[in-house]
Design a protein around this nucleic acid. Sequence first.
DNA 1: CTGAAAGCGCTTACAG
DNA 2: CTGAAAGCGCTTACAG
Lengths: 352, 352
Amino acid sequence: MRRVTIHDVAEAAGVSLATVDRVMNGRPGVRKTTIEKVRQAAETLNYTPDVFAAGLAKKRLYRFHFLIPDGPNAFMEDLSREARSHAVTMSGARMHVHVEPIDAFDGHRVAGTLAMLDRSACDGVAVVAPAFPEVRAAIDRLQARGVPVVTLVSDHPASTRQHFVGIDNIAAGRTAGRLMGRFLPKAPATIGLIAGSLGLRDHSDRYAGCREVVERDFPHLKLLKVREGRDDNARNADLVKKMLAEHPDLAGFYNIGAGSRGMIAALQASGRSGDIVCIGHELTPHTREALMSDVLDAVIAQDPGHEIRSAIRVLKALCDGVPIIEGQERIRIDVFLKDNLPDISELPDLPG
Amino acid sequence: MRRVTIHDVAEAAGVSLATVDRVMNGRPGVRKTTIEKVRQAAETLNYTPDVFAAGLAKKRLYRFHFLIPDGPNAFMEDLSREARSHAVTMSGARMHVHVEPIDAFDGHRVAGTLAMLDRSACDGVAVVAPAFPEVRAAIDRLQARGVPVVTLVSDHPASTRQHFVGIDNIAAGRTAGRLMGRFLPKAPATIGLIAGSLGLRDHSDRYAGCREVVERDFPHLKLLKVREGRDDNARNADLVKKMLAEHPDLAGFYNIGAGSRGMIAALQASGRSGDIVCIGHELTPHTREALMSDVLDAVIAQDPGHEIRSAIRVLKALCDGVPIIEGQERIRIDVFLKDNLPDISELPDLPG
DNA sequence: CTGAAAGCGCTTACAG
DNA sequence: CTGAAAGCGCTTACAG
């Protein structure tokens, strides 16, 4: 069972290799009748182009830049570790992944970093996009220059980015809200909310989702005003401590953003964690341990490895102008209880 | 920034292309000192072999057989649809995926189908393995003949299969058990359990997991004896009807296997669905609708598209003797509430 | 609008 | 133990 090659099609259609290539790749300058002949022959022979031969012949390189926040955030560290790890894996497939740390709270510098990129240096960009207007402008400019941009983890839907690699944060918030409502008894109670900043799109989306579900389906629960802790563990610990003191009837906590470690520590110190339903985001060593010890009741998460692989595949597809497999690029809203934690997988190998 | 090629390494090491190839691919017949020279040169130049060139030059074909149950089971239908869809996608990468329907309840015929396969016809097998000893023997025989086998969805851990593509069903059962316990009030109550058959490994694993959690953490809940409905909607509906009649205090149902449609219909007909926490497996049009209408409270699921892609990647890696990316091949235990349902994605395109 | 020929970077016999 | 050369199945200028 030999493979059907472009030679076979050329022969069957009575044309040259170059013409078959033009037709198969939709290149211009072929007569309609010729196109039809080639199409027919390809169909009859059930021809599928060999991706290896094609990849070798067009000596294209793909240079992708990944802009990922640094700083002491376990999830972002995972994300950038995955990116660096896949840079190694992918280089044999002619894809060069460059990871550039950014400061997600400094919109001007992020925009500046984006502004330095253009087609001569870069074939695609994935960016964890903070919600500043100057960031949006920079994304739009890159797109206009012909560099495809995807947003990663935090979206900028008003921009012209081609695709968002991340979870539906409204749905994630709804999920947290329902788990909170169902885990608590059907009785009036007060819920504390912490976010990094409602200026971050993913945080505000989660809040909106949670609120929607609680107000509609669990009206006996009272959501306190969201306190913003900038994803900082110390600040979050402080906030939790204060809220516990102010609200002796506090029955639940939802940490919308990062810095769960601070919330966990404060709860444990209070001695009240057994009476409080507590939900956070992202699977890290700290949230994992808190689930195991029943301090956290559920963790809503997204898989950084999947997100990096997806971003790479999507950027390549955009460069090539080919479609993606939708289902493969949908990032799941993972729900972790203490019962379905994945085995601690080894961190991806990094050289050096 | 030209790519570093095997030529560059050969020149730097002062050897021929063939020798570099031998070293890079660990082929025998090279002097230690030569190996070292080549290693050095490759390292210094930061050489990564081009997968396209390699793929083209070794004109290997991969013929994979997927043995998937047919019959009226929405999940298995999805699984086999995904397999047929990826057969098209992958054929350009020299992988031929052949889908063979099997009868999961007929161990002898499954074993017979496996017995027909050998290296001359097939380079790898993925099988939804029913727990019959003759199936295990057939798997072991295939492996012994040098055909790598992976189990899909339902494992046969005692066999020599190289890998299991599926979820940890004990953990899935634990998750169902905890959701049941937490969604119900902390009061004595009775839970009904339905399985397809406890002879199916995935079903018995889920039962064990659920039982473990309920007995330890929710001892006020009483689990009824598991009723087996053979994953049949009509039988399951009957079972649910009977259990509802026999147990007026029934507060929960866990359908461990397929045929959720029958359970859903019987619950709705009884008019008691509002008072009963109900958990099932797999996301199908029926379970999705039941979640939306609050008949089902949670669905534990696995992603058939991911499982097919994973099986293909793993089989290829086994053929090539290269490692896999662990994180990419871990199949998640998806937890769906009405709040985090994925958009209805179009079914994968199939030709014809 | 179409074709002949070189070349992409590996692997594979074959020869020594 | 090592090397020279052909070939894998496409794409890419270039010529007509």
